[in-house]
Design a protein around this nucleic acid. Structure first.
Lengths: 415, 415
DNA sequence: CTAGGTTTTGTGAAATGCCACAAAAAAAGC
DNA sequence: GCTTTTTTTGTGGCATTTCACAAAACCTAG
């Protein structure tokens, strides 16, 4: 058995996937690429020979172009490839610059690890070539498996590192940078923390999708990421695109579509911390992003459409205000009086006041929102002023009431 | 000498001022009262004999009625008494229920310590009686001096205790109560911290005046007080009166008149913490009262007329908001844009916005306050919306701007 | 100085908010 | 049940705000 393998010579002769690719290419007389299960380029043969534009694009971007994968999926080639242990012949598709080729899945214990592609531009594989290809796939499996475990370990080390930064004690900026360097992570000059949260546990697959989609949406590198049950977290490079309204809309749309696709009840919510270039502040960035999520949940109408902590406006204070009020057992006496009246007379002065304030003290809009005649609203406002002993023409009083109302609401909604 | 004294028999024969009063009364055959320099009753003879209404009132309230002191001061009797070492004969003043009497100052090394009053209702002192009275005053001096030093030491111990409660680490409620008990201080069930602050160092005399005036104004006991340079601090019993608007006006008037009388530039400012019955929170009460003072100084128009922390409304958050914004180097981008425009064009959009908001978005009032034509204000508001990218019909935006503006102002004013 | 922009002020028309009043409806009290 | 109070809705007028437009004043830079 051992002899047989040695004779075939694929298994141990080459140290790396690159050498394997070159070896296969030489044996078959065709250009060869080896990719992982996500169609990311792992190795390609360097020997001369004509090459089609699909292969060039793949090598340049270190990934098979989305368009090519799309086409091959549509034709059913990708699934055939994934299901079969045999080489699969693929006809040329000139419209996407794809020349004729033969490919085979690399697998181990029935899990798909990657693919070997052989471009048959100048010559076609015969039976013995196909057999060689199959043996090459077997040889690649071992190497690919080692590649994956190494990758996974690296990823896990990075994830641990990231989690510690997020939730552990704050460490000085320089130390964070040094440790990142050691793990081969290049930190961006300025960064944000991004979180995506679902109502229920997010599946691994969905997380991978997010991992691809969001950074590309924001045109930002995400050198660190982590996931914890209901949420995925990234360290994002700060870019121009993140701050644009268009990006916000695109993000919302993307989350909606992904949530739909994965049948997530309650959808997903995303949040960004403020931008910072001080890595000792990473933990507080995480808390900022979490605050955004909390506020989006508590005030879907007002905060729901926002993503970044920068954009929260006065809402950013609510967690603190609510907590302080709770500790001091503070209640606004005006609101208490209205609440008491409401309880006794089954009225809704408190709600009326809240809506009136939220509608910027615009009588017309508030009346509409409450399904009320404008005069009724006016009557209520007079009662509110009387019973609550409130001057509705004082900005100070209105701001106090608005904040106290919202702090109450926040407390109630976050239970 | 010793013999002589012994023979006169005033000095050592009596242990207490009460016994001395009784002894003098017996020797002279008249009712006797002994008072301190502030006309507070220290001792009075219990032997029978007719007594006028002024003496009765003095004994009941343990203090000479204000009215009587006023009358005697006006007649020049108090000052004669204070300047002379000899007994002073005082004619009856029936209109205030004062019978005929003779009095003498008690003094040691030319500092006035108190008075002995002899009521001559039924008989008149002869020369030997006057001489006895003078000797009695000499004997009282020693006792009174000890009384004063004891009082002062007690006061100092209480002041130290109070200062520690105010500025030291918080100690548990029960411990505070126990320690107070040991010092003979009876703590009220619910209390507030009160501070009066002047622009410059407050004189001792003024402090004493405050110590009398304010608790009586608020009809509240003040079992503990302390002074530190520019401020006087009290632990006040919580009473109904403190919370009334009338009390607030009276307090303001009282402070004004005292500041005037003592020629204090910049007047005085007073503040009250919220009411609490938890003595472990005493320190935070002190900080609350200080916050009130800070805010009164920073926002004289809006917070100036207030005293209690309860009444601060949203202003109570400003110190925290300002500090957070400072630490995060946060600046509101809308305000920044306006500021930049103002700087470049020598305009005053920022001030316009601030006034407009402060005037509750009332165009007319804001225009008046800015000495502007209503249309000009409108034009400016449009520019503000444009340049600052502000929606002036959104309560959320307005609240955010208002808070950010005020936090800025607070920071600037507290340098 | 002048041309261009910005800002202020003036005018009038349309829209809107505010208020008093009254009738109807609903709720509370007896 | 009835009466009384509270609340809602309707009407119309008055005052204000808002807006478009235009003229005047002011600034600024070439």
């Amino acid at each position: 058995m051992k002899n047989n393998r040695k004779q075939d010579g694929w298994d141990d002769r080459y140290d790396s996937l690159e050498e394997l690719a070159d070896g296969v290419s030489e044996r078959l007389g065709c250009p060869v690429t080896i990719e992982d299960a996500g169609n990311r380029l792992l190795a390609y043969s360097t020997h001369s020979g004509s090459t089609d534009s699909a292969r060039i694009a793949t090598i340049i971007s270190r990934r098979v172009p989305e368009q090519v994968i799309g086409s091959l999926s549509q034709e059913g080639i990708m699934s055939r490839l994934a299901q079969s242990d045999e080489p699969v012949r693929i006809p040329a598709i000139p419209s996407i610059g794809l020349g004729r080729r033969t490919a085979i899945a690399i697998r181990k214990n029935s899990t798909l690890l990657g693919y070997i592609w052989v471009l048959e531009e100048s010559r076609t594989l015969d039976e013995s070539g196909l057999a060689s290809l199959k043996q090459a796939a077997g040889a690649a499996a071992g190497k690919l498996e080692r590649h994956y475990t190494k990758k996974r370990k690296e990823l896990e080390r990075r994830q641990d590192f990231f989690w510690q930064l997020l939730t552990g004690e704050s460490r000085p900026d320089e130390r964070v940078r040094a440790e990142a360097e050691k793990l081969g992570v290049t930190l961006p000059g300025t960064y944000r923390i991004a979180i995506v949260q679902g109502a229920t546990r997010l599946e691994e697959v969905l997380g991978k999708q997010l991992n691809e989609a969001l950074p590309s949406l924001w045109k930002a590198r995400a050198p660190l990421s982590a996931s914890g049950g209901r949420e995925w977290i990234w360290l994002l490079e700060e870019t121009e695109q993140i701050r644009t309204a268009a990006a916000a809309d695109a993000t919302a749309a993307c989350l909606r579509s992904l949530a739909d696709r994965y049948g997530l009840q309650g959808g997903m919510s995303a949040a960004l911390s403020t931008a910072s270039s001080d890595y000792s502040q990473l933990g507080s960035g995480y808390r900022e992003a979490q605050t955004v999520l909390q506020l989006k949940a508590g005030f879907p109408e007002q905060v729901g459409p926002l993503f970044a902590y920068d954009d929260l406006g006065h809402y950013r204070w609510l967690p603190y205000l609510a907590e302080q009020n709770r500790q001091a057992r503070y209640t606004n006496p005006c609101l208490e009086r209205l609440r008491a009246y409401d309880a006794e007379h089954h009225s809704s002065l408190l709600e009326t006041l809240a809506v009136f304030l939220a509608k910027d003290c615009n009588g017309k809009e508030a009346a509409e929102a409450l399904h009320l005649h404008a005069n009724s609203l006016n009557y209520r406002l007079k009662r509110i002023a009387e019973i609550g002993r409130i001057r509705l023409d004082s900005m100070d009083q209105k701001v106090t009431l608005y904040l106290d109302l919202q702090a109450e609401a926040f407390l109630k909604r976050s239970k």
